[in-house]
């Protein structure tokens, strides 16, 4: 194995590392915001909101039921087909946000529904309204419950950003390919790429038990 070429490509690796981080952060942040909104709306009982709930259900099921790679292709080829031209970064951000939003919406929805109905009743009997109960009583408990599955999903999402290389978004894998072409060292290059993913994902995975311990600290007598 020969890693002597690495210093010369440090800049390129760092740039690619940054691009992966950026895509991961966007998917995580906007996906979480979108997922919270969709997840909360999906649990409402209001009759007027029923059509919106149906549309959101279709969105969540469609995106969860179709591989991310296919969604990337559909938008990448579909938009120009419809006469819409957006650049690769925007395409990638859009697809990743919608995809992670659909998954996070499901985590949020099932979390909200797992909170005992007694919590709602206690809130209403204390003269609180829907929004106050949702944001002060239900969501904090939901997030505490869902936090480890959320972080697990975030880790998966960051690893899935590698798929964006296929439509030409220049993240770690994409840049790894061009480095490999230039150096002729595929094995060492992919080891370096793997190390980069590990640097992002490992601390996140270590966060899960910390969060769980923190969340459980009040539950003991």
């Amino acid at each position: 194995m020969d890693f002597s070429w690495v210093p010369a490509y440090t800049g390129l690796f760092l740039k690619a590392f940054g691009m992966t981080l950026r895509l991961g952060a966007i998917a995580v942040f906007f996906g979480t915001v979108l997922g919270l909104v969709v997840g909360i709306l999906s649990t409402t009982k209001n009759r007027i909101l029923k059509p919106i709930r149906v549309i959101l259900k279709v969105y969540v099921e469609l995106l969860r039921g179709c591989p991310l790679l296919i969604q990337l292709f559909m938008v990448y080829f579909g938009f120009p087909y419809m006469g819409i031209n957006i650049d690769i970064s925007l395409t990638t951000f859009l697809v990743f946000t919608l995809y992670s939003g659909a998954y996070i919406a499901e985590i949020v929805r099932s979390g909200i529904e797992s909170i005992s109905v007694g919590q709602w009743e206690a809130g209403y009997s204390l003269d609180l309204n829907y929004m106050q109960i949702m944001f002060r009583i239900i969501l904090p408990q939901t997030i505490k419950l869902a936090l480890s599955s959320l972080v697990g999903f975030y880790i998966g999402m960051i690893k899935d950003t590698s798929l964006a290389s296929i439509i030409g978004y220049s993240e770690l894998v994409r840049n790894g390919q061009s480095i490999m072409n230039q150096t002729g060292r595929p094995f060492e290059t992919y080891i370096m790429v793997g190390v980069c993913y590990f640097i992002i994902c490992y601390p996140l995975s270590k966060l899960v038990p910390v969060i769980e311990r923190k969340a459980a600290r009040y539950d003991r007598a």
């Binding site: 005992s116 007694g118 919590q119 009743e121 206690a122 009997s125 009583i137 904090p140 408990q141 505490k144 009040y218 539950d219």
Partner: peptide
Amino acid sequence: VFQQFNLFPH
């Protein structure tokens, strides 16, 4: 006041 107390655990 409820049978199951329904305090807010968080």
